[in-house]
């Protein structure tokens, strides 16, 4: 499962890439492959205030609707308009062209609540082990 080295991650499988006080947010490879073909991205409003780990927006696939949570608190400063025409961008390029929103971060200290790429990698492994255990029951 692809993980980008310098991004930070949440347990709900969002990533954030922080540069100069602004964080670009998207969902991970694991999230997009679990969701399947994405059919709709409800984009947040520019200027919306968001809290860490609170719903930022939602994504639909054919048979699911999932909330996307903001990795950091702040204000939405830009959204990826291309997703309204082509939600499949997330499936094809979840870490790059399929970004969802840019957030002006209000509290950098919150980043300590996020996982590094390495931590997220082991988190994914632990999920896989749990899944197997469930299957054995």
């Amino acid at each position: 499962m692809e993980i980008v080295e310098h991004y930070l991650y949440t347990k709900e499988h969002e990533w954030i890439n922080m540069e100069d006080g602004t964080g670009t947010v998207g969902i991970t490879e694991y999230a997009q492959s679990t969701l399947g073909d994405i059919t709709f991205v409800e984009l947040p409003n520019v200027d919306a205030e968001v809290e860490q780990f609170e719903p930022l927006t939602s994504i639909e696939s054919v048979k699911s609707a999932s909330d996307i949570f903001s990795p950091m608190s702040g204000r939405v400063v830009e959204i990826n308009d291309e997703l309204s025409e082509d939600p499949g961008l997330i499936n094809r390029s979840c870490y790059d062209k399929g970004w969802i929103a840019k957030v002006e971060i209000s509290d950098m200290d919150e980043s300590s609540n996020l996982m590094t790429a390495a931590e997220y990698g082991s988190y994914l492994e632990s999920l896989e082990r749990e899944g197997e255990a469930e299957g054995d029951e």
Binding site: T39, F40, V62, K63, P87
Partner: peptide, 10 residues
């Protein structure tokens, strides 16, 4: 057989 539901939704 096996309709493309993604296309329908998009």
């Amino acid at each position: 057989s096996r309709p493309d539901e993604t296309k329908a939704a998009r």
